[in-house]
């Protein structure tokens, strides 16, 4: 779906800005919001471009940088940290060869930190795109990487 087709699905009222941004980002293969899409959004809603950028910049789920096919949101909030998430995250980061916030050179994975994902009874936890993974260990991370690379 191109940008205009997505925009046309939404009434041009400002309360639709967040739903539009979600939809545009979900439909981008690199999971991000392009400058061109944001300009078209401002025009569709008849609001200033700066107010669109202001909203995009505020919410952590939106990205203006291209990201990988798989966006990893790794929980580092109090419960997951207590249950050892930092060690697992370090392993993940080393295994992918990227720091937090970076994307692998093959464009497959982006590694992000996240606040509490509400999976605290099975910590450490993370999400990859819309899927969640719990009770994480380095072994489990290894098998998830293999599985996603092969899919």
């Amino acid at each position: 779906m191109d940008t205009q087709e997505i925009l046309n699905k939404f009434k041009p009222t400002k309360d639709n800005l967040l739903p539009i941004l979600h939809s545009l980002q979900d439909n981008n293969p690199q999971n991000y919001l392009t400058d061109e899409a944001l300009r078209a959004t401002a025009k569709h809603l008849n609001i200033s471009l700066s107010s669109v950028y202001g909203v995009v910049g505020y919410y952590t789920m939106f990205s203006r940088k291209p990201r990988g096919k798989y966006v990893i949101r790794f929980c580092t909030s109090p419960v997951c940290s207590l249950m050892g998430s930092i060690n697992v995250l370090d392993f993940f980061s080393q295994r992918l060869g990227i720091a937090i916030g970076e994307t692998t050179s093959d464009g497959i994975f982006t590694l992000e930190e996240s606040e509490c994902l509400g999976r605290c009874s099975k910590a450490p936890a993370m999400m990859i795109n819309k899927q969640h993974y719990v009770n994480l260990t380095p072994e489990l991370i290894e098998s998830i990487i293999q599985q996603l690379k092969n899919s």
């Binding site: 400002k14 639709n16 967040l18 919410y59 952590t60």
Partner: peptide, 19 residues
Amino acid sequence: GAGSYLCGEELTLLESLEG
């Protein structure tokens, strides 16, 4: 929402609902 803890505060939530 889009990843903001603060939007759980009721008046902030209204701002977010308004886009």
